[in-house]
């Protein structure tokens, strides 16, 4: 059987593999190569060694600024999104009245695209700032907290769904037994619920981490980096390096490689660290 399946690779494997090779493998390899060259179109690439990488970090401060902004944003978002999502999940896994409706409402913003989300919050935040005579692009802090609020609004529902699934997986007998032994609700939370939902924490912190680092649409729509480039995150900074001015394509590609390495290392590190805290029931 499996040898006959193997003979049918051109039906089963080939279509996906060709598309994957042409639109992922080749662009990836070509991207790594081009990061060591100077080019405007792909065909006129000149090898320049690590010059693009040096330029990315020293040329102007936009990349380092974007890196710092992204790190701050990711830290704040990971903490707030997961904290609120977990608290909501606790409240919504008690079988209270209206649970399904609440869950549906909290999840809803997640389905709205980043561009649309960005403009919704731009109007609201500008409206809130109106009495003070300033707007979202007046100060980078407004853009920062605007993005945090927007991201919370968008991601809490998604993470909440994953936490609810994790909490519902805990055997009710375990909780019953703890109650009979006289455990307080807080002790049950700390000693049973939290350790046993660690797999959900692994997934949710992974998703919030990678989504925060890769955030682009929301950033573009909410502030587009204003004032100046101060609220540009990494993805937007790379985009602007490529398409904002001619002659910086190589630097943009070098930033892309650094961005990729950063996301990959952080993602692996995070999974490794939280996995080690997972326990069996």
């Amino acid at each position: 059987m499996h040898s006959s399946l193997k003979k049918h690779f051109f039906i089963f494997l080939l279509p996906t593999l060709i598309a994957f090779t042409v639109f992922f493998i080749v662009p990836f390899v070509l991207g790594v190569y081009l990061s060591f060259t100077e080019f405007t179109t792909v065909s006129n690439a000149q090898f320049v060694g690590f010059q693009n990488y040096i330029d990315a970090f020293t040329g102007d401060s936009t990349f380092l600024n974007a890196l710092w902004f992204t790190v701050k944003f990711a830290v704040v978002s990971i903490i707030t999104v997961n904290l609120f999502a977990f608290l909501l999940a606790l409240a919504l896994s008690k079988g209270l009245k209206g649970t399904n409706l609440f869950r549906a409402v909290f999840f809803m913003p997640n389905l709205i695209g980043g561009i649309v989300l960005g403009y919704i919050w731009q109007v609201i935040i500008n409206g809130i700032l109106l009495p003070y005579g300033v707007d979202l692009t007046f100060n980078a802090n407004y853009g920062f907290w605007g993005l945090v609020v927007l991201t919370n609004w968008q991601m809490i529902g998604y993470m909440m769904i994953i936490y609810i699934a994790g909490i519902n997986n805990i055997s009710p007998q375990l909780i019953e037994a703890a109650k009979i032994d006289g455990a307080t609700p807080f002790q049950i939370l700390r000693k049973i619920t939290l350790p046993l939902t660690m797999p959900s924490f692994t997934i949710c912190t992974f998703l919030t981490l990678t989504n925060s680092f890769k955030l682009f649409d929301q950033n573009l729509a909410l502030t587009a980096g204003a004032p100046g480039r101060e609220t540009s995150m990494l993805a937007l900074d790379i985009y602007n390096t490529f398409y904002g001015r001619i002659g910086y394509e190589g630097v943009g590609q070098a930033k892309g490689v650094v961005f990729f390495l950063l996301v990959a290392v952080l993602a692996l590190l995070q999974v490794y660290l939280t996995r080690s805290k997972e326990v069996e029931a």
Partner: peptide, 27 residues
């Protein structure tokens, strides 16, 4: 092949953004 697919999941779009759109235009 399987691990290449898994690997592709963590690659952010900006890494291949420029080369991918060049290839798409050329083809």
């Amino acid at each position: 092949i399987y691990y290449l697919f898994v690997f592709s999941m963590i690659v952010p779009f900006q890494m291949v953004m420029f080369t991918l759109s060049k290839i798409a235009n050329t083809l």
